[in-house]
Nucleic acid binder design. Sequence first.
DNA 1: CATTCCGTTGCTTAATATAAAACATTGTTT
DNA 2: AAACAATGTTTTATATTAAGCAACGGAATG
Lengths: 256, 256
Amino acid sequence: MVQSVDRALTIISLVSQNKDGMGVTELASHLELNKSSIFRLLATLVSHGYIEQDSETKKYKLGYKPLELSSILLESIDLRLEAKPFLKELETLTNEVIHLVVYDEGEVIYIEKLEGNETLRTHSKVGRRAPLHCTSVGKVILAHLPQAEVVSILDRKGMPKHTENTITDKESFMVELDKIRNQGYGIEFEENEPGITCIAAPIFDNRGVIVAAVSISGPSIRMSEERLTELRNYITSIGGKISSRLGWRAISRQHR
Amino acid sequence: MVQSVDRALTIISLVSQNKDGMGVTELASHLELNKSSIFRLLATLVSHGYIEQDSETKKYKLGYKPLELSSILLESIDLRLEAKPFLKELETLTNEVIHLVVYDEGEVIYIEKLEGNETLRTHSKVGRRAPLHCTSVGKVILAHLPQAEVVSILDRKGMPKHTENTITDKESFMVELDKIRNQGYGIEFEENEPGITCIAAPIFDNRGVIVAAVSISGPSIRMSEERLTELRNYITSIGGKISSRLGWRAISRQHR
DNA sequence: CATTCCGTTGCTTAATATAAAACATTGTTT
DNA sequence: AAACAATGTTTTATATTAAGCAACGGAATG
């Protein structure tokens, strides 16, 4: 571990948490380092575009480099490219909010979001992370991970309550994961955000390993039994199609 | 300038240019550094999420941290937030591709893009940079910068030819900028990409300084004289509305 | 099976990052 | 308007870390 690199990257994180930016002295105080040290680290980050200094307030804010890298990153994700037309299809079919997420370090990250008819406002956004235990995509991913890894994640991350419906009992949760694995899709009834219900399907890679999930989100008042049956058919079909594009063979499911 | 931070950030840039990732030895060769130095720098970048190691190939690729930071950055740009409804309006009115760009270090960066009716495929993408001299948004921005700064930028960046229509003669270009400044909008006739015509308007902040530009792009075959007149009216109107939202007062234009 | 290459680790020291002190500038208080 | 305080920036000395050498384990190649 290179300490000065660690410090510089910590500065970026701190600065990103302050929309109005942060000053040298403030950063020095937070990190318990000398102002001149902070100044030098900032200068290096500025020269690479990660940070820029507001000419009026002198405060340091995020620069555009992360935006450039993120554009490159999203374009390099084959899954996202292959999935795009299917997500469009799903949006057209359902007129709801569509998400594509990948699994990373015990959480999901949104890498694509289609707004549907835009009557629904959710907290999700490309680039944001979300917990596994109370999102439909998260539950679907956990359902297909090895048991030991699931236990490890739940131990590390806990199961914090987001709404009245959040499942916080571990044993109930494991039963829920079994059910999801068996039926091939998962539903989240207002477990993450009040008033919103989501249904998700897993996406497997060519080796049959779960790598992502796709979901449909809508206001709970629109999610009748009939509607959910309809969405279930769409989401499992699209999940299968995307997986196939990645080289996954459904025949492995038949052998189960 | 902190050398080890400079090296670490250079590693991120190098890695981002290789979709399939890069190995320790390959990076060491590029940077003419020792493998163990590279290894330690990579380990620090991995721990912060900027880089991750592909478990199969052992190669190092971009991690998700830039995506997270970019999401935070875009949300923190007041201009983008204020402009969003106007861009939607413009998309609805014209059914063409709409761009919002900011000026940064002698280039423009796309911070918003609406696809219109999706019959047009352009190279632009949120997060990407583009040159000033051959884009409608770039020319509009240059038209409202101080002359000395324009000259400095042209000296540094040059005026590379992108198409048969790219203006590469400096004097002709300055005349073009004068025209754009006087008429309050700029047009780019296939100067950046063949077959595509764009029309842009400036966006000023509360101090009357140019900070951004908004544009409409379409296939040249659709851009009749009549159509361009129509789009000109839309784009100058929207440009003015967005500027007003940022506290710019049109009265300063009347005094010119 | 032997050789080569790559990623990773332990250890030493040369080079750099760090902090103290000082300075310049800006903002605040009297 | 003057004095004071705070912040950002620069210079300099040295303590600490980053860097590189050598070696190792594992994978790939001939």
